[in-house]
């Protein structure tokens, strides 16, 4: 279980997280939605320890994670924009990450799933955006972790890979894993989420199931419900 209390973060003059509080129970897929610049990525990076919060606490299973690093052994993270060292080939990159993390890896299965075999010996700088995103997904899912953080996993993916990603997420979910996803594609969120967290202006404005948000706003789809929430929160 993740518990975030009173999280504050400002970058210069910009206050990104404003006393954000959030509790996420173990197991299930949680979609973090919100407009650009609402603090979704900062929230995820704070959980990972990449962003150092100004104030507040983050605990995972009762233990504070701030300034720690060993807890990341049980987290898989998919960064928003995948840039890799261009000199390496896909195989070398996978080997390197495996070498750095002494956990059992299921990369052959993942490489097959995302059909990356033809690209294995290509340099990463020569890959297209979508292919890079698949490499990104392989690196994320090759280790089994209890907590999976995905920042815009659908970016640049072709329909077939998107289907595979959905299946993969369902499989992880059935194993009792906690999966936190940020996305801009509402239909994707609607389909996969057990719970929706709506972030606006550095605060949580809604937390609940898809049906709950639809009932609350009186809308038929998640997309219109989020739009209604956005409109009602504007002064």
């Amino acid at each position: 279980m993740i518990r975030i209390d009173n999280l504050k973060k400002r970058f210069g003059r910009l206050e990104v997280l404003k006393s954000l509080c959030l509790e996420i129970n173990a197991g299930g897929i949680i979609s973090v939605l919100g407009p650009n610049g609402s603090g979704k990525t900062t929230l995820i990076k704070s959980i990972l320890g990449m962003v150092v919060p100004d104030n507040g606490s983050i605990t995972i299973d009762g233990r504070s994670v701030l300034r720690r690093w060993r807890y990341r052994d049980n987290i898989s993270y998919l960064p928003q924009i995948a840039h890799f060292p261009g000199n390496l080939s896909v195989t070398e990159l996978v080997r390197m990450v495996r070498d750095l993390r002494s956990k059992e890896s299921r990369h052959p299965e993942m490489i097959e799933l995302f059909e990356l075999e033809p690209f294995l010996n290509k340099k990463l700088s020569n890959l297209s955006g979508g292919t890079k995103q698949k490499v990104n997904l392989v690196l994320t899912f090759m280790f089994e972790s209890d907590l999976i953080l995905l920042d815009e996993p659908t970016a640049g993916l072709d329909p077939i890979s998107l289907i595979h990603l959905r299946e993969l997420l369902q499989r992880e979910r059935s194993k009792g894993r906690t999966i936190i996803v940020t996305t801009h594609i509402m239909s994707f969120a609607e389909e996969i989420s057990d719970e929706i967290v709506f972030v606006l202006d550095g605060k949580i404005h809604f937390k609940g199931s898809v049906t709950q948000i639809q009932d609350d706003t009186g809308q038929a789809t998640l997309e219109t419900a989020i739009a209604a929430l956005l409109r009602s929160s504007q002064p």
Partner: peptide
């Protein structure tokens, strides 16, 4: 130029 690579490493269980 290695900022993104550093980011990749930071997500692993390694001290900064």
């Amino acid at each position: 130029s290695s900022a993104e690579f550093t980011e990749l490493l930071l997500a692993q269980p390694i001290k900064r």
